[in-house]
């Protein structure tokens, strides 16, 4: 039996779908804004760490939430895991090409929704036959009615987000990565999006969801990773980690630095990351 078929059903022993080993990432930017003549000649790019050695593994059927403050490296980690940004050091291995929810990039505002479905599905690597079959499902999930024949530039931001989400899910990727995508769209769509994602997980997939809202993670995920300043702080059941993170974020907002620091330490103690990157 080839490994094509084995991935199809959730076995009692879920396989590893993605693993990261000590991933580090530094950013480098040219200093912008007014600068002196000397600094133009002696160009010194600004650089700093984004991820400081992250190791993790996820398995079939897991819906992993990533929480953390703005700038903690959540989105960067997602992009490194998806192979869209090379890490400065470290390795990522996966059982299939991860798909980032970001079809917007391939879409052309002047073309109609239908033509954009065609373009988006091909961008994800479908053949024309598969794209043809996927079209019906996308139309159904996006539920845009007659608007699907109008140019995308006429859509509201919510409608465009629905179409983008529908296209990404239709690819039925084994590993899907979502970056705060579900905040747009009305309640009925959120419900349907949730259903689509659960279907994906039931077919032995893994979903990563980035959000700085603890509630979203608690509602949708089975497991949560907490990232702070590029380091993995905690890894555990979504509800518990999200709760600790909520308390931490609340303390930060109130300026209680000592309470926040204590929350970090206790989170690491109660739900330590499985693999300590050294």
């Amino acid at each position: 039996m080839s490994d094509f078929q084995t991935g199809w059903h959730l076995s009692s022993d879920p396989k590893v779908t993605i693993a990261a080993d000590n991933v580090r990432l530094r950013y480098r930017v040219q200093r912008s804004g007014p600068r002196s003549f000397r600094s133009i000649l002696g160009k010194r790019p600004v650089s700093g760490p984004v991820l400081r050695g992250v190791s993790l593994a996820a398995r079939e059927g897991e819906m992993v939430g990533l929480v953390g403050l703005n700038g903690s490296g959540k989105s960067s980690l997602l992009r490194v895991l998806a192979g869209l940004q090379p890490a400065t050091s470290g390795t990522v291995v996966a059982s299939a090409q991860p798909q980032l929810l970001g079809v917007s990039a391939a879409l052309v505002p002047e073309l109609s929704g239908l033509e954009n479905i065609w373009l988006g599905t091909l961008a994800m690597g479908m053949t024309p036959d598969e794209a043809y079959f996927a079209r019906e499902r996308i139309e159904l999930l996006a539920d845009l009615g007659e608007a699907i024949k109008q140019p995308m530039s006429t859509y509201s931001s919510g409608m465009a987000a629905r179409l983008r989400f529908a296209i990404s899910v239709a690819a039925d990727p084994e590993i899907l990565m979502i970056d705060e995508a579900l905040s747009t769209g009305d309640a009925s769509f959120t419900e349907r999006a949730k259903e689509a994602m659960h279907g994906l997980i039931a077919r032995a997939g893994t979903v990563f969801l980035v959000s700085h809202a603890a509630q979203t993670i608690e509602d949708m995920c089975t497991r949560a990773l907490w990232l702070d300043a590029g380091t993995l702080i905690a890894d555990g059941p979504a509800g518990e980690v999200a709760n600790m993170y909520r308390y931490y974020a609340h303390s930060i907002a109130l300026g209680k630095d000592r309470a926040a620091k204590k929350a970090l330490v206790s989170a690491t103690e109660s739900h330590p990351p499985l693999f300590s990157g050294t």
């Binding site: 490994d3 022993d13 879920p14 396989k15 590893v16 993605i18 693993a19 080993d21 000590n22 190791s55 593994a57 398995r59 490194v80 895991l81 998806a82 192979g83 869209l84 940004q85 090379p86 890490a87 390795t91 990522v92 291995v93 996966a94 059982s95 090409q97 991860p98 499985l274 693999f275």
Partner: peptide, 29 residues
């Protein structure tokens, strides 16, 4: 196959916990 690209302790740990890793391939190279 990408499993041997992982560092030895991590690979051993993963194998003992979750079993076979031979289906993994390197991402983003």
């Amino acid at each position: 196959s990408g499993a041997q690209l992982l560092s030895t302790p991590l690979r051993r740990d993963l194998e003992s916990r979750y079993g076979d890793l031979s289906h993994l391939r390197r991402v983003g190279s």
